[in-house]
């Protein structure tokens, strides 16, 4: 079995978000880039599946320029066997999925994070599944291999389900899929550069959406404080002033 983990390169989650060019582009000056947190959990689960046996290879793939390679190498340091970088700046989710569809055909299981923490698209995994005509399950919080099938926990609106589904499968994973992202061991860090990182040329594709501009949320009014000894007052305020009770 071969597993592909989709890796998105995103700004560190503590980044203070700023825009430039009259709010038309994200200001990446001084930004530290990390593996998208959900993708990192997906990779961790892939490693666990491999350690449990039955997985021959874990590949990580990313669409982006050379500057995203440290992120892929971190994934290699964590334990992926090889990496693919489609050499083109990522545009929208459709464009990214089109590029990935070219390199993802031969995998039995594709793990994608439910969203990326930058554009919150919730899209690439599902789009890729459709392009490849693979089965897909979203909101996956657990997955294991069961012969030629997969046993999957998914969250539904109002509960959770335990499923059995045939591959090839795109599992779109969320919190719970693995406990914590793995910290790469030094041996892994040293080996990362020796593992294959294949750079693939982009295919011709057009994005279907474009970002016109950005807005920052309006600054919040000061917090109205209520005295600890008179906490009941809070309920009155919520009822009469804020009208949310």
């Amino acid at each position: 079995m071969k597993i592909l983990v989709l890796i998105s390169n995103v700004p560190d989650t503590t980044t203070k978000v700023r825009f430039t060019g009259d709010n038309t582009s994200f200001d990446d000056a001084g930004v530290q880039w990390i593996i998208n947190p959900w993708d990192e959990l997906a990779l961790t689960r892939a490693m666990e599946l491999k350690e449990a046996g039955g997985v021959d290879k874990i590949t990580v793939a990313n669409v982006g320029e050379k500057t995203t390679e440290p992120t892929l190498r971190k994934a290699l340091a964590v334990g992926a066997d090889d990496a693919i970088r489609v050499d083109v700046p990522a545009r929208d989710a459709y464009f990214v999925a089109r590029q990935l569809a070219e390199v993802a055909k031969d995998y039995d299981l594709i793990l994608a994070g439910i969203e990326a923490s930058d554009y919150n698209g919730n899209a690439v995994g599902g789009m890729l599944a459709e392009m490849l005509d693979f089965n897909s399950v979203s909101a996956v919080s657990g997955i294991s291999i069961d012969g030629d099938k997969f046993t999957v926990n998914r969250e539904i609106d109002g509960g959770s389900q335990l499923l059995s589904i045939t591959g090839p499968l795109v599992a779109i994973v969320q919190k719970g899929i693995a406990k914590e992202p793995r910290i790469p061991a030094m041996r892994g860090i040293m080996m990362a550069r020796k593992k294959p990182l294949n750079v693939v040329a982009a295919v011709d594709a057009h994005e279907k959406t474009s970002y016109v501009n950005y807005e920052l949320p309006a600054p919040k009014a000061a917090c109205k404080m209520v005295d600890e000894e008179n906490a009941k007052e809070l309920i009155t305020l919520l009822h009469e002033e804020a009208k949310v009770l």
Binding site: P70, R73, A77, I183, P184, I189, A192, R193
Partner: peptide, 18 residues
């Protein structure tokens, strides 16, 4: 180097997380 930065990050992650 990239490796040195990765080790720094690994140490930071372990310290700040665990």
């Amino acid at each position: 180097s990239e490796e040195q930065l990765m080790i720094q990050q690994a140490a930071r992650d372990y310290a700040q997380r665990e």
